[in-house]
Write a protein that binds this DNA or RNA. Structure first.
Lengths: 221, 221
DNA sequence: TATATGTATTTTGTATTCATATACTTAATG
DNA sequence: CATTAAGTATATGAATACAAAATACATATA
């Protein structure tokens, strides 16, 4: 057993560590939109120098989590209503597309996994285990995205999910209608079992459309 | 008249300058896939310190132009055939979607602009002005993307275009079939004039599909 | 009192320095 | 002759130092 090798594999640059820390803080709503990110403050908090903090902030900017104004500072990006509707508009299209691809490209192993996740979700429903249902929901969709076998597509979709997640935690902490989600999952699953891209796309689009409609209603009220 | 304000507006951090320099070098094929990016070398070339170079490299990593191996170095990202087919698969879907949105959301000013670009393209065709045709082609599609009125969608599509551009310059320097492009533009334009999202989507998808098929043929041969 | 001006403080931008891991070279050994 | 070990050079990671801009604050002036 060689411990050095393991340690080396596990090595992460500090900039990466800070990046994940801040990313998580923003995603969880701990750092709120508009809030200023000051290099020394963060560096002191984490016990590192400004250098890795700056690296982290640049990366966050590229992910639309932060906006930078040269010589002024970095701020947690705002999330306007328009932004979030844009995100959902694209999600609807791309998740429909991913489901269609998945219907064509999914293999039996993946189908079995998907079936198990659905059962898990149902168990969660019976026991009113909210966390478990949310986890299963995420897992269900992730499996479909991966089954599209298009890594770039997967990355884009996850990116959009992160954007939405941020919005959800800051403004919109509801996550209801588990029954409807269950039915929707069932229809998508059926389409995938039938290798029916058209149906898969339609159902997956509808799934996101429901979210979009809900958010839209919530926003305009 | 306030000159200070103007100067301030034009200020760009060195990291940004280096970023654009390297990005351009990669996009133009000057820096080839697999090539190593060494911080001191680049810093010396540009007469800056390592700090802004490091910033630039991190940003490039986020754009999939560079891959970094901790404590080893940064390399211009490879572009596999699978990669480029993934990119085109998404482009087909998203450009079709953008065209559909454009058909619904485009206003008269935008339609007029589009008409002028088409005329310009035709002029270029008559004079065999290749550069002009390429410029018009880009302009034509850009106008449609912008008419979708979804800025995030636009950013994603341009990002995919950049990926493809890189591939094109390194491996596939052909840009032919101007007549077919002209016809395709015509059909898309017609759909937009008719406010026909379905037709716009179909034609825009076909436009990308032609590219995809060409690349696919070229790759497998 | 309100505005302008000068000064101090804070913060970002960039360069430099130091530490450490990796790559390279050369020499020793089987 | 091939292979490995030691030592050297080089590159990156991270901290620090320095420069310049932005901000806050106090004082002066109308």
């Amino acid at each position: 057993m060689n411990f050095n090798k393991l340690e080396i594999r596990n090595y992460k640059p500090l900039g990466e560590v800070v990046f994940e820390y801040l990313r998580n803080a923003i995603l969880s709503g701990e750092l709120k939109p508009g809030e200023r990110l000051m290099e020394v403050t963060i560096a002191d908090q984490l016990g590192v120098s400004r250098t890795p903090v700056r690296e982290a902030i640049r990366k966050l900017e590229k992910e639309n989590f932060v906006i930078m104004i040269p010589r002024k500072g970095a701020y947690v990006a705002d999330l306007t209503k328009k932004d979030i509707l844009e995100v959902l508009e694209i999600r609807k299209e791309l998740e429909g597309f991913a489901a269609a691809l998945a219907a064509e490209r999914m293999n039996d192993t993946e189908r079995e996994k998907l079936g198990r996740v659905i059962e898990d979700f149902n168990d969660g429903m019976i026991n009113m285990d909210k966390k478990r249902m949310i986890d299963c929901d995420n897992e269900f969709h992730s499996l479909i995205f991966y089954a599209s076998k298009n890594q770039r597509l997967i990355n884009i979709i996850f990116d959009l999910h992160d954007q939405f997640q941020r919005f959800r935690l800051v403004y919109f902490n509801e996550f209801n209608n588990f029954h409807e989600i269950q039915m929707s999952h069932g229809r998508i699953f059926e389409a995938l079992l039938l290798n029916d891209p058209k149906m898969a796309r339609k159902e997956a689009e509808e799934h996101v459309e429901n979210i979009r409609a809900l958010v839209n209603r919530w926003i305009t009220e």
